[in-house]
Design a binder for these strands. Structure first.
Lengths: 357, 357
DNA sequence: GTGAAAGCGCTAACAT
DNA sequence: ATGTTAGCGCTTTCAC
């Protein structure tokens, strides 16, 4: 049985059925302009009877705006981004915008292609968690043409006047480090993805927004220590790839070779998981042998015993904020918008404890 | 500094710059029809110089297809769906389709509105994880009009000839139950969201696709037991809301009041988390006191000790399959498509062990 | 091989 | 208040 594939009923069909011109039908259906109440009746009735559905494509053609925003993120399957996207979608939907999401896996070429595609779809604006690098021509081109853009989570060195919505990475990390310091810890090891030279970061006084999130978090750690007159020991900085297994390996190595570490701090969700696995491997009794503090609310941190103290990010709100910020920019292109850095929250559980000596 | 908002360069601009008609420009740019190599050169050069970007909206208007598919799911922030969506997006992208995702939170009204919106956007097809209920007028209307639709994860009683892509819920559950039976367990408690009467399910011989996933899983459990000549005991069926805390409460209650349970099986990710928390609360030593088996690969099941045996769903592949299935349907609307039920896999870890008596 | 012209569905002047 | 007309950017006959 061949599927009907009946063509969509258009505004013309409605107009004819209602016995009016298509402009009148349009006015009634769009609720703009004036129409007699009799016209109103007839058109509404005809539209309903025929099952008329407005064609958003045609509308977009005319108006030049598609009521769609494009999002470019590394990976939707990452729980952080999926919750962010839920917040972003909800906020966008509320404001009457649809969302198209594209994943880059942090690959520049894919990012370029994604931007081109979203551009072709004539999205009204873009939220981009850019692949961190010096200068993206693709983004610059869009920006020059006047496409509203908001950076998310990180900006990259080439941000120009584009606002960024992100966690306040630096202070989130201070929060974590301060908590451990408050408990009396001074030998706090940090697991980080940042490859920066420690010296350069220690003296960093520029805009933190120009650094990668991981570096910003490392700066926060250094700053918290410095504020108490402690100079971070190179031995306490554990570098690992953004990979659970590698983090586990690096942490295990360091813990086996450095005796006086009393606290361990993982600076993102993946590294935190890896570090925790190392603790299990080594049979470390936390918080007695070692206080442990992780990043990002992950379900497992509430399921293990003792449960794990973490720095929580307001994921949903980050997404929602990015959406409202972009929509603000779409509606008022002239207005200058400031960066928005949302604060993290410390969720204290049972893995961190007062240092007893 | 006022933003330029330079208007997009159109095919006409390119044509003029290249000194040809817009039809020729179109032919070259779209790579259809014939054009002299000199025209080719000139147009390509002009397009590049002007930074021409085709307008997908206009294309869609003409062609009637937007190369976009709409997806309706309960909640993108749910790790199951976010990974599914990653698979779906990747597969769709590969085939040249963009994806628009909408969340319903399992609310029928929101679902109806979401469908209307996607319809207005003139998506080429829809993947729907429907709110389970008897008959959705909104879906029927779309289907009658010939919109290609694929159900995902569940279908609902009103599926008609619409294919469904889902896990093979029933056999997934048999797999789990059989594993426990193989280990010698017979008093296997099951945590389920299904509210069905046990008798009716025990004798159910209809199309499992007509049941909710939770019921299908309960049927699988019953079938596995029946195959070994065991009649499921009503006392072993722990009903809980789709809520971690409630599951924890119900499991705690039952475990405290029923002495001879030797294995516990959670039938979805949320209920499994709750059940596990109850075990922790009660101080149950698994797998010695009790074998524990969960559903869905969640990170925590690998982070706790002993680690937890689970039934894993091929999330990414489920999503990718839904996409290819829908695209198949879009390209060949006449073809009848069968349901696709992907098999689950048992991931055996340390929480299940041979029953010693 | 190339151009002129029509039209996808809709809205917005502009007339009436 | 309502109809006429033009046009958004593109593709596609149809002549030439």
């Amino acid at each position: 049985m061949a599927r009907p594939t009946r063509p969509q009923v258009t505004i013309i069909d409605v107009a004819i059925a209602a016995g009016v011109s298509k402009s009148t039908a349009s006015r009634v259906l769009a609720g703009r302009g004036s129409a007699s109440s009799s016209a109103h009746q007839k058109v509404s009735a005809a539209a309903k009877k025929l099952g008329y559905t407005p064609n958003a494509l045609a509308k977009a053609m005319k108006s030049g705006s598609s009521n769609t925003i494009g999002v470019v993120i590394p990976d939707l399957a990452n729980p952080f981004f999926s919750t962010v996207m839920r917040g972003l979608s909800d906020a966008a939907r509320t404001a009457g915008f649809e969302v198209i999401i594209t994943n880059t896996d942090n690959d520049v070429d894919i990012e370029v292609r994604a931007l081109a595609l979203l551009d072709e779809k004539r999205v009204d604006g873009l939220v981009i968690a850019p692949v961190f690098q010096t200068g993206s021509e693709a983004i610059d081109t869009l920006r020059e043409r006047g496409t509203p853009i908001v950076f998310f989570d990180r900006s990259g060195p080439s941000r120009n006047s584009t606002p960024v919505v992100s966690l306040d990475h630096l202070n989130a990390s201070r929060l974590a480090t301060d908590h451990l310091l408050d408990l009396g810890h001074e030998r706090i090891a940090i697991v980080t993805e940042a490859g920066n030279d420690l010296e350069s970061l220690r003296e960093y006084r520029g805009d933190p927004g120009l650094l990668r999130p991981s570096s910003q978090r490392l700066v926060g750690y250094l700053a918290a220590l410095a504020a108490r007159g402690i100079t971070a020991d190179r031995e306490l900085v554990i570098h690992a790839e953004y990979d659970r297994a590698d983090a586990a390996r690096q942490v295990r190595d360091r813990l086996e070779n450095t005796r006086d570490i009393t606290a361990l701090y993982g600076t993102d969700s993946v590294l935190t998981s890896g570090a925790f696995l190392a603790l299990l491997d080594l049979g470390v009794k936390y918080p007695d042998d070692l206080s442990f503090l992780g990043f990002d609310d992950q379900e497992w941190s509430t399921m293990v015993r003792p449960s794990v103290t973490v720095v929580s990010q307001p994921r949903y709100r980050l997404g929602a904020t990015a959406a409202t910020c972009l929509i603000e920019r779409i509606r008022h292109p002239e207005a200058e918008l400031d960066d928005i850095r949302l604060p993290a929250k410390l969720t204290i559980r049972d893995s961190t404890a007062q240092l007893v000596r």
